[in-house]
Amino acid sequence: MSVFRRRKKGILSEGYLWILMAGLLYVLGLFTRDNSAFLERIYPASWNRALIRILSRITGVMPVSLGEFFVYANVAAGVVLLILLLKKIFTGGFFTLLYRIVTYAALLYFVFMLVFGLNYNRASLREDLALERVNYGTEELILMNEALIERANELRGKVSESDEGVFTLAERRNEIFALAEEGYDAFSEAFPQFGGEYGIAKGIIASEALNYTGITGIFMPFTGEANVNIKGPDLLFPATVLHEMAHQRGIAYEDEANYMAFLVSSYHGYEPIRYSGTMLALINSMNALYKEDRESYRALYETYSEGVKRDLRAYSVFYDAYEGEVNERATKVNDTYLKSNGQVSGVKSYGEMVNLLLEQFMQKGEVVFP
């Protein structure tokens, strides 16, 4: 009889539990910002990588990014819910709907922190690579740039170029996604903690629109997917793929993911991928030198091969066409996101990969990690 029927409870039926758990994770995040050792004891990085690995392999069976559609659905739902919320101010049920919205937001926050957010509080990548944090000066920066330029010039002579003389990938984007996996396979032989089978990187359908924001890739914590803009220049495309794959492996900070992209590219046997990773490192390192010593920067720039110079000019020209208010607003949003997760210097921290490069160069004696 109907009197004995029990109502099925949905995932949001006990909303206060999700709000409570989200609050507990928020407090845990605050506590572990300065106590990475405690985080490692209660939630080891290996557990987190295993979780992302499983999640990414499940979503990886789909050829398109589920995370991208997840974003679209939530943006559309947000607009609809905002309209409904305003309407219910006058028709009643405002607080009931608000409670459900807060519950859903708490659920999203809980999943984000569990899958990815807590990685912002982990120990530096330096610990995995046995690097010591040291502040090096301009002299060491110049020496490292000389080594990077020599490597870039050498690799540039081994890659293909277009009729305009600009570096061009012979492979399609999907083929680069598969090739990138080989880099992490080789790297994991030296550093097994970064090994394992993850879902393959995916292209973003709205890549052309993303060019106006300056965004070249996005890691989707809710699906474990490494998503890459497929409408940008070839120059840094392989490095960007490796960067987003670094996020899959639990590396949260942008500077460390950039460094990991260079590091993994140096283990790859394919010259175009090594060249792309080297150019990522060189651009960041030379930008740092420009701020410190412009005269030395100009002198070193003249030692670039003509091919490297053409590649950099073409890369700059491509993104010049997309600059504008949308790009500036997207940068501010990204800056706010990074700072909210403890990356205090925000977007400026993208240049901090140079510290890791310098430590590697000075402490290991090579611009390429041994």
Rank of each mutant, 00 (worst) to 15 (best):
Y267G: 02
I200E: 14
R126F: 04
E225V: 03
E181W: 00
R294S: 11
G60W: 02
G324A: 10
E254G: 10
E325I: 08
T91S: 15
W18P: 03
L148P: 13
E181F: 01
N153L: 12
I52Y: 04
Y337G: 00
N153D: 14
D293M: 08
Y259F: 15
E161H: 14
A170N: 13
K348P: 00
M286Y: 04
M362D: 04
N135F: 03
I83D: 00
Y120P: 06
T240A: 08
N334W: 04
A130K: 15
N284D: 01
G23P: 12
T168L: 07
G183L: 08
A22Y: 01
L155Y: 12
L98N: 09
K202Q: 06
E306S: 14
L85S: 12
L30W: 06
S13I: 01
I52F: 01
G15Y: 01
S124I: 01
G195Y: 05
T32D: 07
V228S: 11
K8N: 06
L107Q: 09
I200V: 13
A180L: 07
G92H: 10
R100F: 07
V347L: 15
R133G: 00
I11F: 11
E295C: 00
E295Q: 14
D234P: 09
V317W: 05
F70S: 13
Y275T: 05
T278L: 11
N258T: 02
I200G: 02
R274Y: 07
T278M: 13
I142N: 08
I142W: 11
S276L: 04
T59L: 03
A321F: 02
E14Q: 05
F167C: 05
L210A: 11
D335I: 08
E140Y: 02
Y315P: 07
E292T: 08
D128C: 00
F38H: 02
A106G: 04
L55Y: 05
L81C: 10
Y267D: 06
G195C: 08
L357K: 12
E146N: 14
K348A: 10
A130W: 06
E302S: 13
Y275K: 12
F318N: 11
V368A: 12
N211Q: 05
A206E: 13
P192G: 10
R173K: 11
N48G: 07
M279H: 12
R310Y: 06
S188I: 11
F70K: 05
E197R: 15
D320P: 00
I283D: 10
L17P: 01
R100S: 09
E295N: 14
I218S: 03
R126C: 03
L280D: 08
A130V: 04
L39C: 02
L12T: 14
